[in-house]
Computed example of a mutant assay.
Amino acid sequence: MSNGYFGAHRTKLSLDDLHAGLITANHILHHHSVFDAYSHISVRNPDSTDTFFLADTTPPSVISSLSDIIEFKFEDGSPLDTTLSLSGVSERWIDSELYKRFPGVNCVAHSHCVDVLPFCTAKVPLKPVIPSAGFLGSEAPAWDIASAYSSGIFPGSGSSGEKHDRLVRSQNLGAAFAIKFSKTSTSTGFIYSKLSESVSSVTGGHKDKEEQADPDYAVILMREHGFTVAARGIEEAVYMAIYTAINARVQREALQMSESYFGGTIEGSIPEKGGSIKGGKTKVTEEVQTLNAKEARDAWETGRENGWLDRGWLEWKRAVEKNPLYENQVQSDE
């Protein structure tokens, strides 16, 4: 686990617990059907200012040893060991750019969970419907990678040679995605950010705007793709990923139940000469109740103060330790 590695007072020197926790996190998220074979979770290296650990070439359920964990650089997402072949690591720039942009982010999880995917395609906002998902705020914003394809800000954007496969497969796309975690992620703010970076790189100066340590959003949906969590530690990332999936499942079932029980009305206008309803759409008579922004914030604070993260971690960790599918060869003190 990551307790004792990050924060004002570090209490652990050996990285064994951190590596063991990263392996366990992969197993937990796979066990809860949040991770498929192509999802991943990473953690910042507390012994370095510019690297992170990621086990992405091996499926989450199979990760078991230090040899499965690779150390990458923030700068460009490249491995510290230049001899490694990384054909299987296609979206590590999600992580590198988030770590680079937000010093307070120590763990990143990226998932294609089937419970959340409907909210990535139907454009129904994912909102907190249970206190355990208070970290979502008023709702989880959604990012469409197509906006980065067509922006023209990056070299090759919109070119015929660029692959539009919805994957964050480059540093530029990772940077565009990381910006979405800030409330200033408007097109104007995005352009200003890129121009500021360019000027700083040429002059050797600092950015005009003050560095933002923590993201404004913990979870961002990715259109036709999945979702990503930016957290302060492994336990927090695992908790958020699991309850993002649970909240999505509860919300979806509540929407279906509400429509089935209360029914709906058809909105739109009928042409004078008859025919189909113009602009017709179904509106559910009764809306599903969700937490407002204050309730979500207070619920998240209550959960952190009352040890929800550690309590969940202990139960989930125990479950995968007793499951013969998962093996963790890294010795932990806990």
Rank of each mutant, 00 (worst) to 15 (best):
V129W: 07
D115H: 15
D81G: 05
P118N: 11
P103T: 12
K127I: 11
G137A: 09
H110E: 00
Y99P: 00
V105P: 01
P125N: 10
S87I: 03
F102E: 05
F119K: 06
S138G: 08
A109I: 03
V124I: 14
K127G: 09
F135L: 12
G134P: 03
T121M: 13
A133F: 03
D81E: 11
L117C: 02
E97I: 09
P131Y: 02
E139R: 15
D115Y: 15
S90R: 04
A122E: 06
I130W: 05
G134N: 06
L117K: 04
F102Q: 08
S90A: 14
A122H: 02
T82Y: 00
L98S: 11
T121I: 15
T83M: 11
P118I: 07
N106L: 04
S138R: 05
S96M: 06
S96A: 10
W93E: 13
V108L: 05
D115G: 14
H110C: 05
F135R: 14
L126S: 01
L86W: 00
G134W: 07
P131F: 03
G104L: 11
V129D: 01
V124T: 08
I94Y: 07
C107G: 05
H112M: 12
S90C: 12
A122P: 01
T121C: 12
E139C: 15
H110P: 04
S132D: 15
S132K: 14
K100L: 13
L84H: 06
E139S: 15
C120P: 03
C120E: 08
A122R: 04
L98C: 12
D81W: 02
S138H: 09
